[in-house]
Amino acid sequence: MKRYLLILLAALASLAVCAALALAVIERPEARTDLPRVVAHSTEHAGAPHPITAVLLDFRSYDTLLEVAVLLVAVVVALALREAQPDGPDRMGLDNPLLRAVMSWLLPLMVLVAAYLLWAGSTRPGGAFQAAAVLAAAGVLLRLAGVRLGGFAGERGARRLRALLVLGPAVFVAVGAGTALGGRAFLDYPADWAGGLILAIELALTLSIALALLSLFRLAPPQSDVERLPERRRRTRE
């Protein structure tokens, strides 16, 4: 009985939201400014000719900076929730020769695609986020195949990981502070440096975002599941 009441309530609530949004779609007010034209006009002076990259890293770079900060905060919370246990052998090692063989073909390709996306981002669809997503996917694949990323193991590795995680926001803030010290507004690049600065920021962002996504994935499993792996393998073979 109570369940039906809940469903009724949910249906009512979602209908109300639908109605409100539909009203917004039908009664859409006229735009006060023609944003596409403004963007098209000012893209000529921006550091990147591709309008979306220009919006992301030039006109609205505050948004992007804060977005990377959000990612960083997410990783920090995940790190804080991690259980104090030694980093055991990899839980997810599927240890399959076929997977490893495919990976040895796939990984260089994925890194290449990521580099291309990053580079193409200034003139064509692509950019730091897409490149970072592909890199993170490559890292997840590595992890599924049970390959450990040796550079990030142990005390020094953890420190290195944190440094790389902070690299993106740090470069971003440094550029912003640099422009502010140079007498311009925060993150307002000088015209002839804009291209280089944006590329530098994108490079740092790619590394940081990829590592952040990967470590959010890596931090999830509790380490004590390790000893259950052989038993699971036996079960899948049966």
Binding site: P36, A54, V55, L56, R60, D63, E67, L71, I209, L216
Partner: peptide, 16 residues
């Protein structure tokens, strides 16, 4: 391009 860039940002925040 402006809402497109915002959505791009939003997708990354959503996955995080």
């Amino acid at each position: 391009p402006v809402p497109q860039a915002l959505v791009l940002t939003g997708i990354v925040v959503a996955v995080a």
